[in-house]
Simulated scan of single mutants.
Amino acid sequence: MTEPPDLASIHPPSGLVLRAGDLTLRPLADADLPEYAALIRRPIFEDEQSPQVFPWYRTEPDVRVREALRFQWHLRSELSPEQWTIAFGIWAHGRLIGSQDVSAHRFAERRTVSSGSWLTLDAHGNGYGTLMRQAMLVLALDHLGARRAESSAVLGNAASFAVSRACGYVENGTQVSTLRGSVEEEQRFLLTPATFRRPEVPVEVDGLTEELRAMLGATATASPPA
């Protein structure tokens, strides 16, 4: 009997791995989902009544888990050059501590990515929020050829603002939240290759195959820096 193929050979995003300092970023696999489910039951926010709390986190834990798993499977099925989101799990010293996503719409034409992220409360204060965003930006700018990176956070979210500014984002107007269940006012941020503040540690990118580039609409890019 022949061995079944490695999942990355038939679903290229599964083989993507970023490494930066203590952190490893890779798309969540089904085998990770029990650990992920346990993670999102844990505290993320100091004040769970704050307007900064994600709408999906306000639900009962069982509902939160069920919807989070459905969302992960949805992202895989909807990935195409027209629109995609890669949701990275974040591991520090082998322990899952949060999530960093990167998304694009018509990336081949727009060369623009957006992102969102969170860490469990006990992982705050280690610089991980900045480093995981920088690692994602190295992938987007240097390896996929993005020319713009956009982000936003609810007004008053000082921790998120600090991460954006540490990475080199600049303020870019405000908006009403696009998240379902939220009408909070958000600060928009914009980063370009010229403003990007790179991490102090190297970022390794493995598994970015030509097949994956094609799936993301990123086939015609400059070579990554030496």
Rank of each mutant, 00 (worst) to 15 (best):
E3V: 08
P4Y: 08
D6P: 13
I10R: 15
H11M: 08
H11S: 07
P12C: 08
P13S: 02
P13R: 02
S14K: 07
A20M: 07
L23E: 13
T24S: 11
T24Q: 10
L25H: 03
L25M: 15
P27E: 09
L28V: 02
D30G: 13
D30V: 10
A31H: 15
A31R: 14
L33Y: 07
E35R: 08
L39F: 09
F45Y: 15
F45C: 11
E46L: 15
E46A: 14
E48K: 15
P51T: 07
F54T: 07
F54A: 07
Y57A: 08
T59C: 12
P61D: 05
D62S: 06
V63L: 13
V63G: 03
R64K: 12
V65D: 01
R66M: 09
E67I: 14
Q72M: 11
H74V: 01
H74I: 05
L75F: 03
R76D: 01
R76C: 00
P81Y: 00
T85A: 02
W91F: 09
W91R: 04
A92C: 11
H93R: 14
Q100S: 09
A104S: 12
R106L: 12
F107L: 03
A108G: 03
E109H: 15
S114A: 10
S115F: 10
S117V: 06
L119D: 06
D122Q: 12
H124A: 10
T130N: 07
T130F: 14
L131P: 05
R133E: 03
Q134S: 15
A135W: 06
L137N: 06
L139F: 11
L139I: 10
L139M: 10
D142G: 10
H143L: 09
G145K: 00
A146P: 01
R147C: 03
R148Q: 03
A149L: 11
A149P: 05
E150G: 02
S152W: 01
S152D: 09
A153G: 02
G156H: 00
S160H: 06
S160V: 09
F161G: 01
S164N: 06
S164V: 07
C167P: 02
C167R: 02
C167I: 10
G168S: 11
G168H: 10
Y169E: 00
Y169K: 00
N172W: 04
T174I: 04
S177D: 03
S177A: 09
T178Y: 05
L179N: 05
R180A: 12
R180V: 14
G181E: 03
G181T: 12
S182V: 01
V183S: 06
E184V: 05
E184G: 00
E185L: 09
E186A: 06
Q187P: 06
R188Q: 11
F189T: 02
F189I: 04
L191D: 02
L191I: 10
T192K: 05
P193E: 13
P193V: 14
T195V: 13
T195N: 07
P199K: 14
E200Q: 13
V203K: 11
G207D: 12
L208H: 08
L212V: 10
L212P: 01
L212R: 05
L212C: 11
M215P: 08
L216E: 06
A218G: 11
T221M: 10
P225I: 14
P225L: 15
P225M: 08
